[in-house]
Amino acid sequence: MIKTADELRRASVLFLKDVYKAYGPKVVLDNVDLAVRGGELCSLVGPSGCGKSTLFRLVLGEERPTSGEVSVGGKPVGFPSVDRGIVYQQYSLYPFLTVFDNVVFGRRLGHGILGSLGKSREFHDEAMFYIEAVKLAEHKDKFPHELSGGMQQRVALAQALIMKPKILLMDEPFGALDPGVREHLQVFLLELWERFEMTIFFVTHDLEEAVYVGTRILVLSQFYSDGRGNGAEVKRGSKIVFDRQLPRRAGATAVKDRAEFRALIQEIRQAGFDPHHLQHVTKFDLEHPDSFHDLTDEELKKGE
């Protein structure tokens, strides 16, 4: 069933259509289309320099696309706002606030100083609920620098969750953690995702993590071919070259060792990460039901 763009836009939390982004002569994103539904845990991988962070910043609203449409919850994206929660690899937490104050900060900021009067009980209960959800109740009065890296990221999750964002954006959230802690947090994130029915957009450079965590995997890559030819005059940017629904992983990290898990990773590696394996735009593996890709006539041109 082919859905129209309008239908998809209405059904999606995050919607990108014909998005281009160029810095001067350098094209980074080249006609990217994407629709993400509520409740998806969508992970995005790609080789370094493919523009993951650029795409991320467009969704966040820190930058504008050169052309094309980016909308969240049906509305075009403006400057960063409460629609979109965020967890960074670092600097998510404010060093001058305790764990509790970091988590409650969003509620206080949103209400202003006068609006917060008389609400401290309500805010306290709400913050404690999320702090308990990330299992940090006994550390609530510590400062971020007194916590381990994994604990800091859990606080960052609670801090973002309390705002109930339409979509939670995560930029390499576990990139700086030790392998053991990292795996633990991946499982933890899945539990939270399930419990709070979140929509998550998860950017990582770690393929294994992307496949393990995601219910949907997107691969952004500059390694493909199209009707525009191969000359140096072609300014090509990255496209989503792979888009698949993934089976829901039930907690256990043991799946990472299963043959089909490894096979999928191999497949993705070939599709997106191998500079010598150039798939034609018409041959992309876009099996996800919401996946769509409007190609331009140029890109479709035969006989390069």
Binding site: P80, Y88, M163, P165
Partner: peptide
């Protein structure tokens, strides 16, 4: 990041 984060927290 601190400023962007604050904006997403409704500042």
């Amino acid at each position: 990041e601190h400023i962007t984060k604050a904006l997403t927290l409704g500042a």
